[in-house]
Write a protein that binds this DNA or RNA. Structure first.
Length: 205
DNA sequence: CACCAGGAATGTA
DNA sequence: TACATTCATGGT
């Protein structure tokens, strides 16, 4: 039994199934609308408290704009309106540009999420990383939670988790991602649950 | 009042 | 490759 699997079992005994306990992201299965909300949230949550992200997402809901197609149109018509919706989540000038970079790419290249999901994960990852505003964590969060691809997400919680549980002190994204991938079956549900449990555990302490 | 939250881009060495 | 700075709101 390797350390990665061992720690997963510990977390499972401690918290049970994470699905439903961790906002939308831990929930399975997800509706089409929820997948789009996760993609939007992936940008808004960059270096930001989830509470503030919720405020912004509420603004989108109230304006009937919580969808990629609506944001695409609003970006063309009234970018300042979009900024106002994003404002409570902070860094709103940047996030407006970043969100539009992402949404424009998806709509113009794939039209729908459904089309995009058919493309292999490694290709999509390369494409996402070319977009200004999308780094490794955001790209992988989208791939894992919205597109349901078996791609392990690394974040600060994961790094702290590895350090505290004597797995490794290395902080490199690619090293840690390979470490988890090599020691777990390639299963997106497992990846979602594990990462969600790491975050739940991190918030808990 | 100070600190920080599920990052990423940019600049420096 | 590694580290510092910038972006901004709302909670504690």
């Amino acid at each position: 039994m390797n350390k990665i699997k061992f720690q997963y079992n510990i977390l499972r005994k401690k918290y049970g199934k994470p699905a439903g306990q961790w906002m939308l992201w831990g929930k399975r299965p997800k509706t089409f609308e929820e997948k789009e909300e996760i993609i939007i949230g992936a940008i808004l949550t960059q270096q930001t408290n989830w509470n503030n992200v919720m405020r912004a997402l509420e603004n989108f809901k109230n304006e009937k704009c919580l969808s990629l197609a609506r944001i695409y149109k609003l970006g063309k018509r009234d970018k300042n309106k979009l900024k106002e919706l994003i404002k409570p989540s902070g860094f709103y000038n940047q996030k407006t540009e970043y969100l539009l970079n992402l949404v424009n790419f998806i709509i113009e290249k794939y039209k729908t999420l459904d089309n995009m999901e058919k493309v292999p994960a490694d290709i999509l990852r390369e494409e996402l990383l070319k977009i200004k505003g999308i780094g490794e964590e955001t790209a992988d969060s989208i791939l894992l939670y919205a597109m349901e691809k078996p791609v392990f997400v690394i974040d600060e919680y994961t790094r702290r988790f590895c350090k505290e549980n004597k797995i490794t002190d290395v902080r490199s994204y690619s090293y840690l991602q390979k470490l988890f991938s090599d020691n777990l079956p390639k299963n997106y549900k497992l990846y979602q649950d594990y990462h969600a449990l790491i975050v739940i555990d991190g918030k808990n302490s």
